[in-house]
Simulated assay, not measured.
Amino acid sequence: MAPPLQAPEYKHVTEECLREWKSQSAAAFRVPDPVHMARFLYELCWAVVRGDLPPQKCRVALDSVVFVEESRRGEVGSVLADIIAHLGQDVTISGEYRNRLVKMTKSFVELSLIVPRLLQERCEEEFLWEVRVNTRLLYQQTKFNLLREESEGYAKLVTLLCQIGSELACQNSSSVTISIIKSLIGHFDLDPNRVFGIVLECFELYPDNTIFYQLIPLFPKSHAAQILGFKFQYYQRLDVNSTVPPGLFRITALLVKSGLIDLDSVYAHLLPNDDEAFEHYDSFVARRIDEASKIGK
């Protein structure tokens, strides 16, 4: 069990408030005096982290108060995101307290108290990764910014990948690049699948740079095979006269060799299919046998 936390002194989140918010009549309870928004939200988050209040009761708590800055109530999500970012960096919040912090973050998003974009912009990479592992917040977005729309985020992404692709990879550059990519996804609401496609395209240009082996595991393993499969299928279309680029075969082989994708998941997208391949083989063998039988006649 983690040692007790040194939480701030509660001015607004009193024992009476905690008791009322957890009671059956919580919806009817009202805090009598206006409270300062930032201080109240800070204490509320600490109450959840300490285990004094279940995170799902925070909506009831918010409904029970009037802020001194009531005209700024629409900024609650932004203030909560700042508080979570601060708590996420607190090294004393560990063990069960850390678990409660992650669960609280998930609950705030589910209750629509915070939009994921604010967390992605303000929280540290390590904490975002914890939240992503447990709630997939990092890649849950309701509307993605496609290439045909605002392109600034994608332009920054391509520039970044081309810069690091042409350089020698190192551990520091890998961690920095991962952090920047996550920030770009969050700040510009980029479609993670499209981002993954761009990562693979840059890997195709710079297959000797090992940094891509650290970037690709950020995305679901099955997505790599699907995106590569779509690329192969594109060149199989009758209206496409280009042949499959050698680089596409190369990165596919490299990803299979490194265990980042399964051969079977890519094999299904390749031509010819098994029946056509066997038919071609049988025809080839029959033709060669026929040619051999005519020798000397």
Rank of each mutant, 00 (worst) to 15 (best):
L138K: 10
Y139N: 05
T142N: 08
N145V: 12
L146Q: 14
E150C: 14
E152M: 13
L157A: 01
L157I: 07
G165C: 01
G165T: 00
S166Q: 15
E167L: 09
C170H: 13
N172F: 12
N172Q: 15
S174V: 14
V176D: 03
V176A: 12
I181W: 09
S183D: 09
I185S: 00
I185T: 01
H187G: 02
D189W: 02
D191P: 04
P192T: 00
V195F: 00
I198V: 03
V199H: 03
L200R: 06
C202T: 07
C202S: 02
E204I: 02
E204H: 06
L205D: 11
T210W: 13
T210F: 11
L215Y: 01
L218K: 06
F219S: 04
F219A: 06
P220F: 09
I227Y: 04
I227A: 05
I227T: 08
L228Y: 11
F230C: 11
Q236S: 10
L238N: 11
V240F: 07
V240Y: 08
V240R: 12
T243P: 00
T243G: 14
V244A: 00
P245G: 07
T252N: 02
A253Y: 05
A253W: 08
V256H: 02
V256Y: 05
K257W: 08
S258D: 13
D264S: 14
